[in-house]
Amino acid sequence: MLRLRIYRVLLGTLGIASSVFGLALVMAFFAYQRPGSEPRIPTGPVGHYFVAFTGCALIGWAGGLIGAARDPFASRTVATTTAFVFALMAGVRMVAWGVGDYASWLGDLPRTEAILLLGLSIALVWLRPTVSECERASMTSRPHGSQSGSEAS
């Protein structure tokens, strides 16, 4: 099924990208601790603490995305949550676009990112498996004779 294949590729790509980005943020934290180091991210020690926190969270999120790419019927919540978070991130970027501190640094980039994130969000909403598809998949994967209850709607 083409829709499912695209969904898996999308989740897999997002998962790999998140893990690479997360790893880079964690590495930036450790690199910052070296004596005399120049910060790769324009922020101080407190900022780097939160950068590392974000990096760890991204790696965890990446695990969920890659897991969902491998078995898309196991949990459609991953796609739902990711779509919601992308919309939230887009909102943050639209506010940042209007604030001089960020706009003078990033120009029109936050708005472009917001458009991209909302596009991905819509794609996730429409590509993720339906409830009935997940139920069908779970029934066929169960051992024979252990099927119970609900018929796919």
């Binding site: 779509a83 919309a87 887009a90 909102g91 639209m94 676009w97 209007g98 708005r111 917001a114 458009i115 909302l118 596009g119 969000s121 819509i122 909403v125 429409w126």
Partner: peptide, 25 residues
């Protein structure tokens, strides 16, 4: 729910495109 989510997301997308022509932009 899927349709509602799409409407909200499309509204946000329209806002992102329209930002430069608003008073903020």
């Amino acid at each position: 729910l899927r349709a509602l989510a799409t409407i909200v997301l499309l509204a946000l997308l329209a806002l992102a495109f329209a930002l430069p022509s608003t008073s903020i932009g």
